[in-house]
């Protein structure tokens, strides 16, 4: 029995709905002569929380990077609210995967959050007090107000993830692209992130998140893409992720272990608790 029912997603390209936040048409991306994404046709509906779900190596992160124009495409085009990404840059916020950053970098949480406001500030002008205050307020929104002045590498994994979400919030965008926002974060961070995403949805913004775990996707997203190099299914979660696909979760039980690991780390860096 097929796990997921294929839907005829590749219909003629002219019928792209005009209310889509992101239209992807005919997209093929290859690394080094090997296709990673094949013939992707997708419309992410405005104002929904969309999940991109698929196995490792399915091209989920590449899809986000293609939307951001960060990978060369073999064919196809991407439209953000009806125009190319280059002209709509300010409408898109991006939360990269955490591995891509140098954690020893001398920068505080609040500075990182303020980076989200850089496009608004423009070149040559400094970061004003007002922006810093706003960054603090956004940090408060993700429950990090008391850690605003901490160096970024001295935060736990979940806290770092919240900082990057806060930076995206600072961008005041219409579309939020998140790469694995819930990967290896603690339970409370997951709560905070999902809460913020729900708020954004209420404000009518679009969220597109890469998600590794089929099991939790149905709770977190109201629109889903199943991706494995090509679109296997896309649409409302209830139709794309059927009940029997939701595997037994083991995530909750391992959170205490990650907290213990954090305690070990803290002890090593601080000596006596």
């Amino acid at each position: 029995m097929p796990l997921i029912h294929a839907t005829p997603a590749t219909l003629p390209g002219a019928e792209h709905s005009s209310d889509a936040a992101i239209c992807i048409h005919d997209l093929t991306v290859a690394y080094d002569g090997r296709p990673v994404l094949w013939d992707i046709d997708l419309d992410f509906p405005t104002g929904s929380v969309c999940g991109i779900v698929g196995p490792n190596g399915a091209g989920k992160s590449t899809l986000l990077k293609a939307i951001l124009g960060q990978v060369a495409t073999t064919s196809g085009r991407v439209l953000v609210h009806g125009a190319s990404f280059d002209t709509q840059r300010r409408m898109v916020a991006y939360v990269p995967q955490r591995e891509s950053v140098d954690w020893e970098f001398p920068v505080r949480a609040v500075d990182v959050v303020a980076m989200g406001a850089y496009p608004r500030i423009g070149w040559f002008r400094g970061v004003s007090r007002a922006v810093i205050d706003e960054a603090r307020a956004v940090l408060d929104r993700v429950g990090m107000a008391d850690l605003a002045m901490r160096q970024i590498g001295r935060l736990s994994g979940g806290q770092q993830q919240r900082v990057f979400l806060a930076r995206a919030l600072m961008q005041r965008a219409q579309v939020y692209l998140l790469d694995e926002p819930l990967a290896s974060v603690d339970a409370s961070t997951e709560q905070v992130i999902l809460g913020v995403l729900a708020e954004l949805k209420r404000e009518g913004r679009t969220i597109i998140a890469v998600h590794h775990d089929l099991a939790t996707a149905s709770q977190n997203f109201d629109w889903c893409v199943l991706l494995n190099m090509r679109v296997i299914a896309a649409g409302a979660t209830a139709h794309t992720l059927t009940e029997e696909n939701v595997a037994r979760t083991y995530g909750g039980r391992l959170t205490i272990l990650s907290e213990a690991a954090e305690a070990l780390r803290q002890a090593a860096s601080r000596g006596v608790a």
Partner: peptide, 17 residues
């Protein structure tokens, strides 16, 4: 399509498709 659909849990990475 059939392969990738039916075997959504594994992606044949690093295979020249």
């Amino acid at each position: 399509e059939e392969y990738l659909t039916r075997r959504a849990d594994i992606a044949p990475t690093h295979v020249d498709r």
